[in-house]
């Protein structure tokens, strides 16, 4: 049993998106619960990825391959976990705010969060406040993530949070923000719940916001 966990975490670490689902299926056939495969296999692998990346021993493309492997495993596990009533990390609605076309940072955070086990609803760039609101209503995410690259569009983050408040949805979601000119102080000022200084930090923060880290 511990053998399959180790193989799974290794497959994640090596970013092997074809081996991971095979191992997940093998584990399920052996009668291991989806929850245990997730906790003792996939997540152990992703945690190690996080540690190695932070240490400078892993590179972004490798981390993304690991995230891809994780997603491939989750594709099988997610419905089973839902059926078993297990608590999942939930959804994140992500968008680069109105007026801003700089999308790469948000995409990177999205991929990292996906790798951490979240389901991502990617709204793209130049996202109007009401598009965020519509997505919150439709997807009922645990978290809303917003990105901005310019001080003028940072202002749009403030407007979007206010709009979410006015729509009566602020209490239903956590909000985290990021982007080059953004800092913790600003996040506090506009009433966000968190600020990620970079993509891996963003994924870590997302887990904290839902009480999973």
């Amino acid at each position: 049993m511990s053998e399959i966990y180790e193989q799974l975490s290794t497959a994640i670490l090596e970013g092997d998106a074809s081996k991971t689902p095979r191992l997940v299926n093998r584990g399920l056939k052996q009668g291991i619960s989806p929850k245990e495969l997730l906790d003792n296999g996939l997540i152990v692998g992703m945690d190690e990825v996080g540690v190695r990346f932070k240490r400078g021993d892993m590179f972004v493309p490798e981390v993304l391959m690991s995230a891809d492997a994780m997603s491939a495993g989750m594709l099988i596990l997610r419905p089973l976990l839902v059926a078993s009533g297990a608590k999942l990390l939930g959804k994140i609605v992500m968008g680069t705010v109105k007026g801003d076309l700089h999308d790469i940072g948000k995409n990177l955070v999205s991929m990292m969060c996906e790798g951490a086990g979240f389901e991502i609803v990617n709204l793209g760039f130049n996202v109007e406040p009401d598009v965020f609101i519509k997505a919150i209503k439709e997807h009922q995410p645990a978290i809303v993530g917003m990105s901005a690259m310019l001080t003028t569009t940072m202002r749009a983050m403030g407007h979007t949070i206010k709009a979410i408040e006015e729509a009566g949805l602020r209490e239903t979601v956590k909000v985290f923000v990021g982007g080059a000119p953004v800092d913790k102080e600003f996040a506090d000022t506009i009433g966000a719940d968190g600020y990620g200084s970079n993509a891996p930090g963003g994924a870590e923060l997302a887990k904290q916001l839902v009480g999973a880290a």
């Binding site: 972004v60 493309p61 993304l64 891809d68 076309l101 999308d103 790469i104 995409n107 990177l108 991929m111």
Partner: peptide, 10 residues
């Protein structure tokens, strides 16, 4: 508007 992070070329 795409990105290259996941490309095999990268």
């Amino acid at each position: 508007n795409g990105h290259y992070l996941r490309e095999e070329h990268t």
